[in-house]
Design a protein around this nucleic acid. Structure first.
Lengths: 188, 188
DNA sequence: GTCTATATGGAGATAGAC
DNA sequence: GTCTATCTCCATATAGAC
């Protein structure tokens, strides 16, 4: 009895895990068919553009998630201190204490980054921009907030690399703890 | 007239650029033959283990470079303040203000990280360890120096991702500037 | 919407002449 | 030490039956 799924959105999470694990170039269709449980026919039915089409759908899914759970809360303005805490908490959970790679960050290091340049740039620009806005609400000057925002986003991305390299997620937690500290300290 | 090279060390830099650009899985032998100017016969003469053998040689080359130009100076102890400055300067140059990816960091995000786990772990552990030692010489407590060292190494790695994603190397310079600041400020 | 069978290209690797 | 020719395998993608 053939498996029937309602819509293509149902396979996005499994697709995401394959791309996260192997990168864009390293992800093969045979791995994708295994992870999704769908044959090539079904995959090309949902994603006529093939592998690139699938990756675009995954990138959009990731971006939507961060937009909803991280970027928008940062700029909602109700309570910037809570919003900042919320961002760090969400990141620890989402990236599984640094053991789960950031799909967008991984794509940024590959040669195929040009193929997804707009999506990658938009993701990080939005993150830095919304974090900067939050930091300014907390009293940082505009240039200080800008530098600090870049630094924090970079730290989180690098902490994933460091944690995976040493197989020790205490690195991730230490980096996040330090980021919380420098984000809330008053500038000299 | 066939091209003759003295030793395999002569092709390591070109090999490194291919792996840096495409990652391990993304690097193909045809790209390597083009970059090195050598045929497959010559490549397999120098690297009997094939692609993995080449990547190991490149990893060793990178690790040697950092050992000489970054890790060892950090712990020489003559003048820790200068050693720290030296590390940041070397990183800006080596990573070309964030436009050149870190080969080891890129490998760490790929699935094949397991294949090179020992080399990757050693590279980052040594970096954090030597930086921590330098920070302790500068007066930081042992736990503070440990946290700070992890944070700085992570920041540099993440700054490369951020710079490549936004195509704007000012992110890299801002992160480095901020790292210099938090490394030299006296703990509260 | 899902499947199997197949087309076509390029991957990593090897053999052996020079 | 370098080359060309060739091997085998798996990549992405397509066609068409059900």
């Amino acid at each position: 009895m053939p498996k029937v799924i309602a819509e293509k959105a149902d396979v996005i999470p499994q697709l995401a895990e394959v791309f996260r694990k192997h990168g864009y170039e390293g992800a093969s269709l045979s791995q994708i068919t295994k992870a999704t449980g769908l044959g090539k026919g079904s995959l090309y039915h949902f994603f006529p553009g093939g592998k690139e089409d699938m990756a675009q759908a995954v990138l959009k899914h990731v971006d939507d998630w961060f937009q909803t759970h991280v970027f928008t809360p940062l700029t909602s303005g109700e309570n910037p201190r809570d919003a900042l805490d919320h961002m760090f908490t969400q990141c620890v959970t989402y990236f599984n204490s640094g053991q789960r790679v950031c799909l967008v960050g991984a794509f940024a290091l590959e040669e195929t980054r040009d193929r997804f340049a707009a999506e990658i740039q938009n993701y990080f620009s939005e993150w830095v921009r919304s974090l900067q806005a939050c930091l300014q609400l907390l009293g940082q000057s505009e240039p200080d907030a800008k530098t600090l925002a870049s630094h924090i986003v970079a730290s989180i991305q690098g902490a994933i690399i460091l944690t995976r390299s040493t197989d020790d997620s205490s690195h991730f937690h230490e980096v996040v703890k330090n980021c919380r500290a420098i984000a809330t300290q008053t500038p000299p």
